[in-house]
């Protein structure tokens, strides 16, 4: 029982901390809205304008919120010794991971909701035949992205190395998945590489339900890939979690995690 209570309290505490941090609120909630209007300006003359770009923007918002939010929070708490203090209680790494994940899910959901609301009300963006389908697809996306942020948060040693490593991951995820630029603008070999990125599958599924007017049943493959990816990555978190940066991460463990995820996406890329 104390594990469930502890996890709920950790989630609550993480959310309270975020809500009381002005910089966290600006970067999590306000910044994505700036992106919305920048996209609207950039793509206003393209065919179908923002309707075609909204899946990509939702993907960028979901990925950056889930990935950076979780990764930086874990690294900061480890650097500050907060994780170490929790370590001398009966709380487990799983509780900390879930607490962080819940905070991230709530904050990203709030950010996406605000973005969607403004897109609909101010820019008149069309969300396809059913808004709830868009929400379901986004849940699958965030499920796939949050554990990647957690892995990043465990792998990065400190806040000096964390931004460099996360940007190394963030830019391919955004530019080679069709999120920032239409995928057909990229050369063929890069499009193949893009099929090995989880963000590509969120863009695909969102385009299906928002732009092509398809149902959820037609998004089986991308949804399955994101679901499986999330499970695998969450599993690897218990393998990689570090209470303090002096704990060795182990090249074998990092290798296993990366190999597992790469294998999944390589198989999907080959099949499709």
């Amino acid at each position: 029982m104390s594990a469930i209570r502890g996890t709920l309290e950790l989630s609550r505490a993480y959310l309270l901390k975020t809500m009381r941090s002005r910089s966290a609120l600006i970067w999590t909630l306000l910044f994505p809205q700036v992106w919305l209007f920048m996209f609207a300006l950039i793509f206003r003359n393209m065919p179908d304008g923002m309707n075609a770009r909204m899946p990509g923007l939702f993907t960028i918002t979901a990925f950056s919120g889930a990935f950076f939010g979780v990764a930086y929070s874990l690294v900061t708490e480890r650097e500050q010794g907060i994780l170490r203090r929790i370590w001398v209680t009966p709380a487990t790494a799983t509780m900390v991971v879930i607490g962080n994940a819940v905070r991230s899910l709530v904050m990203v959901a709030a950010s996406l909701f605000m973005q969607g609301f403004l897109a609909r009300m101010v820019l008149g963006v069309n969300f396809g035949p059913a808004v709830w389908q868009v929400a379901v697809v986004l849940v699958f996306g965030v499920w796939a992205f949050v554990p990647l942020g957690l892995i990043m948060g465990s792998a990065a040693k400190d806040m000096r190395s964390a931004p460099a490593i996360s940007n190394l991951i963030f830019f391919p995820m955004v530019f080679m998945s069709g999120a920032a630029l239409p995928l057909d603008m990229l050369p063929g070999w890069l499009q193949g590489f893009g099929r090995m990125l989880p963000t590509t599958y969120l863009v695909q599924a969102l385009e299906g339900v928002m732009v092509r007017g398809e149902g959820l049943s037609q998004q089986g493959l991308p949804l399955a890939v994101m679901l499986t990816s999330g499970f695998i990555a969450f599993g690897f978190n218990s393998l990689l979690f570090r209470w303090e940066s002096t704990q060795p991460l182990g090249a074998k463990r990092v290798g296993t995690a990366l190999a597992g995820l790469t294998l999944l996406y390589a198989i999907v890329a080959l099949v499709t």
């Binding site: 104390s2 502890g6 309290e9 950790l10 609550r12 929790i86 209680t89 709380a91």
Partner: peptide, 9 residues
């Protein structure tokens, strides 16, 4: 304190 209390039986 409420957070840390939740970790214990």
């Amino acid at each position: 304190l409420r957070l840390f209390a939740s970790f214990y039986e």
